[in-house]
């Protein structure tokens, strides 16, 4: 595989293959920060969630050493909170200050619309052989779900986490039983996030046959002409029509970036799948 990919990358760049930008550098960095802190939070949080499981103490020792596991959990939480706030600021700035079109509504927006519902039904009909494969816009419905799941998850997990961290402060305006509830909310929502990301997001985005073994676009920022047309024909057609396609042209990803991305990506997937196995063991233990 690596040799094949290597040939791919070099020959494609030197011949006719065109590349289009899907994610900006900032968006890619944001994803990197997101998955790094998420892995860190999961690795330090799961031993607490499944503290009675046989692997809990070993993993805790492995990721935190003596007594540091809670410190690291809080550290990753702060980094992720900052990333989250920067993202919200960017979105609001682009939408409200710069008046950029398509942030809050339309074909390039993350906000779900009627077409997404239709695409979802159509997609599932295609799964069952009941209809043609639907065509997708810039963000497909499962990608929007991923986005909002993480968005909602960060608010819920973040709030409940800070409520536990600063419990005496939050107690000023939360009822007593809420202090019990925040742990349930925090751990259940985090469990959902872990199970979702490490199984469904991994497969939907990276491991499914269309992208197997990894969708590189989130690391390199660009994808090939062919991939663009196949995966999101509606967005391709729209850009072609409006003449914006040219503006999206990017350069072929340098070989070092491809290889570096693979190392990072595979590592992340490997850690994620390991944690998924431990989670399932802990859950059914």
């Amino acid at each position: 595989m690596p040799e094949l990919e290597l040939v791919d990358a070099t020959t494609e760049s030197s011949t006719k293959t065109r590349y289009y930008v899907r994610f900006t550098r900032e968006q890619r960095y944001m994803h990197a920060v997101l998955f790094t802190t998420f892995l860190g939070l999961a690795a330090t949080g799961l031993p607490m969630r499944f503290s009675q499981s046989f692997w809990a103490r070993e993993l805790a020792a492995g990721v935190g050493g003596f007594g540091a596991i809670l410190f690291l959990h809080k550290f990753f939480a702060i980094v992720l909170t900052i990333a989250f706030l920067i993202h919200v600021k960017e979105v609001l700035e682009r939408g409200l200050v710069n008046r950029e079109k398509g942030i809050f509504w339309g074909s390039t927006s993350m906000v779900p619309n009627w077409n997404d519902a239709k695409a979802m039904v159509g997609h599932m009909r295609w799964f069952l052989g009941l209809g043609p494969k639907p065509q997708f816009e810039r963000y497909a419905y499962w990608e929007k779900f991923d986005y909002w799941a993480v968005f909602w998850g960060m608010i819920v997990i973040g709030f409940s986490g800070y409520a536990m961290w600063f419990a005496p402060f939050f107690a000023h305006f939360l009822p007593g039983w809420a202090l019990n509830a925040v742990l349930v909310i925090h751990s259940e929502e985090a469990l959902l996030a872990v199970l979702f990301i490490f199984s469904i997001h991994f497969v939907n985005t990276h491991l499914r046959p269309d992208s197997f073994p990894m969708d590189m676009v989130i690391f390199t920022g660009v994808e090939s002409d062919h991939e663009f047309k196949e995966k999101r024909p509606l967005e391709y057609a729209r850009n072609l029509k409006t003449g914006d396609l040219e503006k999206k042209t990017g350069i072929a990803p340098p070989l070092w970036l491809v290889n570096f991305s693979k190392v990072v990506g595979y590592t992340a997937i490997f850690i994620g799948l390991t944690l998924l196995v431990l989670t399932l063991i802990g859950y059914f233990d």
């Binding site: 997609h123 599932m124 799964f127 509830a181 349930v184 259940e188 929502e189 979702f196 469904i200 499914r208």
Partner: peptide, 29 residues
């Protein structure tokens, strides 16, 4: 309060995971 919070979280977990598990498996196939 705690009982219903847990119930809600469990339902959320079960429904999201069931839906997407089926969705993903069918998609893969």
């Amino acid at each position: 309060g705690l009982y219903f919070v847990r119930l809600f979280m469990n339902l959320l977990l079960a429904s999201v995971l069931t839906f997407f598990l089926l969705h993903t498996i069918l998609w893969l196939v």
